[in-house]
Design a protein around this nucleic acid. Structure first.
Lengths: 212, 212
DNA sequence: AATGTATACGACCGGTCGGTCTTTTTTAGT
DNA sequence: ACTAAAAAAGACCGACCGGTCGTATACATT
């Protein structure tokens, strides 16, 4: 342990370091995350980080895992408390928008940023990101499939396409943090998926009011 | 001039360098574009680049301008050859998709990549990118406004929102080059905007067949 | 062919990066 | 209070970055 208990061994402090890493990486990217800057922002020497993670890549992987955990706690969790079907899809989407709308730091979604960085760079980080995205896609498709099975969406719904649309709308909302009108971005994110669901769902009472 | 005439002064070779810069920057980002790598890929010494551009930032700005020129030649131009209204909007969207679908290099859209990089980094490059995006948004909104004025879209259409949707669909198509199913990406990009226009346009004969 | 000039090149500079190593400080046990 | 173990700190390394400079070379003119 350290003098002031700010960091060092122990799971609690480890996640504190990773939370800072997620925050910095969301703004500057997982590569742009300099170990020196990270250490400085934590009030720690750079070499101290190497006591807990052997290399930068290992810290990057741990950072991804931490971001996934945050994602599950703050987005997946609330969505699963809504009833199955289109209401759960809608709740998930709202949770995503709230999650990013509440962010003070620029850079938008951690995963959108890192995806751009490692898109064309093979390696362990890219593989991990691919796994995360595959799981996220499967989760979205499962939610859409459930809504179809409940009769809340038409039987012929293109599950993969609708899941992609839901995802893409949220990504677009997260990525344009500065250069475009944030009010339009917000309207697009809120109304895009909602309007799509309302157009497909035969029971309008399941979704709140709103036009797209 | 050089021995083999591959580059050096003259507008033609200058644009050749910038085309290579656009290509590399699309994959690795405008910052990740190392002057050493760019020079090596062109068979030129790094210092030779500084004879034509004083600094990396100046070359980055020139690269942006070159990408804009490519954009106008290959996307804006074909779209303007289509009749005003929803058909022009659709033609523009098709040209974008074809443009990126034909790319062999990964990384997707040059502007999407660079936007992520310079989103939160003030400077001349960010300002230039902001200008490009503002002009692009104005162009899209003008196309939508024209379609409304022609009666091909409802009078109450939310121009800014629809323009944003058209843009976001294309961005989403360009960005997910590796980690997600490209076939779904393509379907989403093709059918998303088309379905949106068909839902809004009272005259279905103006648009090709297709479901979303 | 000789010469003057423009130009491309290799070497080099300061700075930052990820990563290692040695030293110093702090903690825990007796 | 003394010692041993653990850990944080800081100096340091090689590699790479953007950028500069002196030099060698190839061209154009006469």
């Amino acid at each position: 342990m350290t003098v002031d208990g700010r960091l060092a061994r122990g799971q609690r402090t480890r996640t504190a370091v990773l939370d800072a890493a997620v925050s910095l990486a969301s703004a500057n990217g997982l590569d742009g995350l300099s170990l020196g800057h990270l250490a400085e922002s934590l009030g720690v020497s750079k070499s101290g980080l190497f006591a807990h993670w052997r290399s930068k890549e290992e810290l990057q992987l741990a950072t991804i895992d931490r971001a996934v955990a945050q994602w599950q706690e703050q987005i997946i969790g609330p969505a699963l408390r809504a009833p199955r079907g289109v209401r759960r899809i809608h709740a998930l989407h709202e949770a995503r928008i709230d999650f990013y709308a509440g962010r003070v730091l620029p850079g938008g979604c951690f995963f959108a940023t890192t995806e751009f960085e490692f898109n064309a760079r093979p390696g362990a980080v890219r593989d991990r990101l691919a796994d995360v995205f595959a799981a996220w896609t499967r989760f979205l498709e499962r939610l859409v499939t459930e809504a179809v099975e409940l009769g809340e969406l038409p039987a012929g719904t293109d599950v993969a396409l609708l899941a992609y649309e839901i995802d893409a709308h949220g990504i677009a909302a997260a990525m344009r943090s500065r250069l475009l009108d944030p009010e339009v971005t917000y309207r697009h994110a809120r109304l895009g998926v909602l309007g799509r669901l309302r157009a497909l769902c035969p029971d309008p009472a399941l979704l709140p009011e709103g036009t797209s």
